Amino acid sequence: DCSRLFDNDLPDGWEERRTASGRIQYLNHITRTTQWERPTRPASEYSSP
């Protein structure tokens, strides 16, 4: 389970979450994917897998 964190500095379409182990990951709501690196572009600029 991940708990949500609120971060207004993220590009549109992204959400920051913390894993059960405390690591931060980023959820792309457009492609429904996650990544460990902080995003720098809006989620819509990433392609679906």
Rank of each mutant, 00 (worst) to 15 (best):
D1L: 01
D1W: 00
D1K: 04
C2I: 11
C2W: 03
C2N: 15
C2D: 06
C2E: 05
C2M: 14
C2P: 12
C2S: 10
C2L: 05
C2T: 13
C2K: 13
C2F: 15
C2R: 05
C2Y: 14
C2V: 07
S3L: 10
S3P: 12
S3R: 09
S3I: 15
S3G: 12
S3T: 15
S3A: 11
S3E: 14
S3N: 13
S3W: 00
S3K: 13
R4S: 13
R4L: 12
R4E: 15
R4V: 13
R4I: 15
R4N: 15
R4P: 15
R4Y: 15
L5V: 07
L5Q: 11
L5S: 12
L5W: 01
L5I: 15
L5F: 06
L5H: 11
L5A: 14
L5R: 10
L5K: 11
F6R: 14
F6H: 15
F6T: 14
F6Y: 08
F6K: 14
F6S: 12
F6L: 09
F6I: 10
F6P: 14
D7Y: 07
D7E: 10
D7Q: 05
D7F: 05
D7S: 06
D7G: 10
D7W: 04
N8F: 04
N8L: 07
N8P: 12
N8R: 10
N8Y: 02
N8D: 09
N8W: 06
N8M: 08
N8Q: 09
D9N: 14
D9I: 15
D9T: 14
D9V: 11
D9L: 10
L10Y: 02
L10S: 02
L10Q: 01
L10C: 03
L10W: 02
L10D: 00
L10I: 04
L10R: 01
L10E: 01
L10V: 05
P11F: 00
P11C: 05
P11K: 03
P11V: 02
P11N: 01
P11I: 00
P11W: 01
P11H: 02
P11T: 06
D12C: 08
D12Q: 15
D12W: 05
D12S: 13
D12T: 12
D12L: 11
D12P: 13
D12R: 12
D12F: 09
G13P: 00
G13M: 01
G13Q: 03
G13L: 00
G13E: 06
G13T: 00
G13C: 01
G13K: 02
G13W: 01
G13Y: 04
G13H: 04
G13S: 01
G13V: 01
W14S: 03
W14R: 01
W14Y: 01
W14V: 04
W14Q: 01
W14P: 08
W14G: 03
W14M: 01
W14C: 00
W14K: 03
W14F: 04
W14N: 03
W14H: 06
W14I: 03
E15Y: 03
E15R: 04
E15A: 10
E15M: 07
E15N: 04
E15I: 04
E15C: 07
E15F: 05
E15P: 01
E16G: 12
E16K: 14
E16I: 13
E16C: 08
E16H: 15
E16P: 11
R17W: 04
R17C: 10
R17E: 08
R17G: 07
R17N: 12
R17D: 06
R17S: 11
R17L: 10
R18W: 02
R18L: 10
R18D: 04
R18E: 11
R18G: 07
R18C: 12
R18M: 09
R18V: 12
R18I: 15
R18N: 10
R18Q: 05
R18S: 11
R18P: 11
R18H: 10
T19H: 04
T19F: 04
T19A: 06
T19L: 11
T19S: 11
T19D: 12
T19V: 07
T19N: 08
T19C: 06
T19G: 08
T19K: 02
A20H: 06
A20Y: 03
A20M: 05
A20R: 10
A20S: 11
A20G: 12
S21H: 09
S21V: 10
S21G: 14
S21L: 06
S21D: 14
S21W: 05
S21M: 09
S21A: 15
S21R: 09
S21K: 11
S21Y: 06
G22L: 01
G22A: 03
G22M: 02
G22E: 05
G22S: 05
G22W: 00
G22D: 08
G22C: 00
G22V: 00
G22I: 00
G22R: 02
R23D: 12
R23H: 04
R23F: 04
R23N: 04
R23A: 08
R23V: 08
R23T: 14
R23I: 07
R23P: 06
R23K: 11
I24N: 04
I24A: 14
I24V: 10
I24D: 05
I24G: 02
I24Q: 07
I24E: 03
I24T: 13
I24P: 07
I24H: 00
I24L: 09
I24K: 11
Q25S: 06
Q25F: 09
Q25G: 07
Q25H: 08
Q25Y: 09
Q25C: 13
Q25W: 13
Q25L: 06
Q25V: 08
Y26R: 00
Y26I: 00
Y26N: 04
Y26G: 03
Y26K: 00
Y26E: 02
Y26P: 03
Y26Q: 02
Y26F: 09
L27V: 12
L27M: 08
L27A: 08
L27D: 03
L27S: 12
L27Q: 02
N28T: 00
N28A: 01
N28W: 00
N28C: 06
N28Q: 01
N28S: 04
N28G: 01
N28D: 05
N28V: 00
N28H: 06
N28K: 00
N28L: 00
N28Y: 00
H29E: 08
H29R: 15
H29P: 10
H29T: 15
H29I: 11
H29F: 07
H29A: 14
H29V: 13
H29S: 14
H29W: 05
H29Y: 06
H29D: 04
H29N: 06
I30C: 10
I30N: 09
I30L: 09
I30K: 05
I30P: 03
I30A: 07
I30V: 11
I30T: 08
T31Y: 11
T31H: 09
T31F: 03
T31E: 14
T31A: 11
T31I: 03
T31W: 04
T31L: 08
T31R: 07
T31S: 12
R32S: 14
R32Q: 15
R32K: 15
R32C: 13
R32T: 12
R32N: 12
R32V: 09
R32I: 01
R32W: 07
R32Y: 11
R32L: 14
R32H: 15
R32D: 15
T33E: 14
T33M: 12
T33C: 15
T33K: 15
T33R: 11
T33Q: 15
T33G: 14
T33A: 14
T33V: 12
T33P: 02
T34N: 01
T34M: 04
T34P: 05
T34L: 07
T34E: 07
T34D: 01
T34W: 03
T34H: 09
T34I: 02
Q35W: 03
Q35I: 04
Q35D: 04
Q35K: 05
Q35V: 10
Q35S: 11
Q35E: 06
W36M: 13
W36S: 07
W36F: 07
W36V: 10
W36H: 14
W36D: 13
W36A: 07
W36G: 09
W36Y: 11
W36K: 04
W36T: 15
W36P: 05
E37K: 08
E37V: 06
E37R: 02
E37C: 05
E37G: 03
E37Y: 01
E37L: 02
E37P: 01
E37T: 02
E37M: 07
R38K: 03
R38W: 01
R38P: 03
R38N: 03
R38I: 04
R38C: 07
P39C: 00
P39H: 09
P39L: 01
P39I: 00
P39D: 02
P39E: 04
P39V: 02
P39M: 00
T40F: 04
T40H: 08
T40G: 12
T40R: 13
T40E: 14
T40W: 05
T40Q: 13
R41G: 15
R41L: 15
R41T: 15
P42W: 03
P42A: 03
P42V: 05
P42M: 05
P42N: 08
P42Y: 08
P42F: 08
A43W: 07
A43F: 01
A43M: 05
A43C: 05
A43P: 10
A43T: 09
A43K: 13
S44C: 13
S44R: 13
S44N: 13
S44V: 14
S44D: 13
S44Q: 06
S44K: 14
S44T: 09
S44H: 15
S44A: 11
E45V: 05
E45L: 06
E45W: 05
E45G: 06
E45A: 11
E45C: 05
E45I: 04
E45F: 08
E45T: 07
E45S: 06
E45N: 02
Y46N: 08
Y46G: 12
Y46C: 12
Y46I: 10
Y46T: 13
Y46Q: 10
Y46H: 11
Y46P: 10
Y46A: 09
Y46E: 13
Y46K: 14
Y46R: 09
Y46D: 12
Y46L: 10
Y46W: 09
S47H: 04
S47K: 12
S47T: 09
S47L: 09
S47A: 10
S47F: 10
S47R: 09
S48A: 12
S48Y: 06
S48N: 06
S48Q: 07
S48M: 12
S48C: 11
S48V: 14
S48F: 07
S48R: 09
P49V: 15
P49S: 14
P49T: 00
